[in-house]
């Protein structure tokens, strides 16, 4: 089945700033891959996986105990821009 893809919308959802040429290229490749992937539809509806874990594990929790946090300087060392203990970014666009 041919798959329709609004590649611009998908790239926006994925926060990828791609050129029109790049978008066109990816759109074509996605089309081919999705045609192959669409074979999953040949399976007539089986029960949905209740629990993907092969050992069927459930109820894995932590007790409410405080553990040491990271050293801020070590964290900030890998940050592109910081100011007195904060990470810094340009203005967040309104409504974003």
């Amino acid at each position: 089945m041919p798959v329709e893809i609004d590649i611009g919308h998908v790239a926006r959802l994925a926060r990828l700033d791609l050129s029109d040429d790049e978008l066109e290229g990816y759109k074509n490749q996605l089309g081919l891959i999705l045609e192959h992937a669409a074979r999953v539809q040949s399976l007539d509806a089986e029960p949905q996986v209740e629990n993907a874990h092969p050992l069927g594990l459930f109820n894995i929790f932590r007790d409410d105990v405080v553990l040491p946090s990271l050293d801020r300087d070590e964290v900030m060392a890998s940050a592109p821009e910081t100011a007195d203990g904060y990470f810094v970014v340009p203005p967040v666009m309104e409504g974003e």
Binding site: R15, D17, L18, S78, A79, P80, F87, P90, V92, M93
Partner: peptide, 22 residues
């Protein structure tokens, strides 16, 4: 591109994220 890793240019955080990732 905010807490670690490559950061691209962007006038807004949204643009910066999209550029960094691309």
């Amino acid at each position: 591109g905010i807490r670690y890793g490559h950061r691209g240019q962007g006038a807004t955080t949204e643009a910066l994220m999209a550029r960094s990732r691309a």
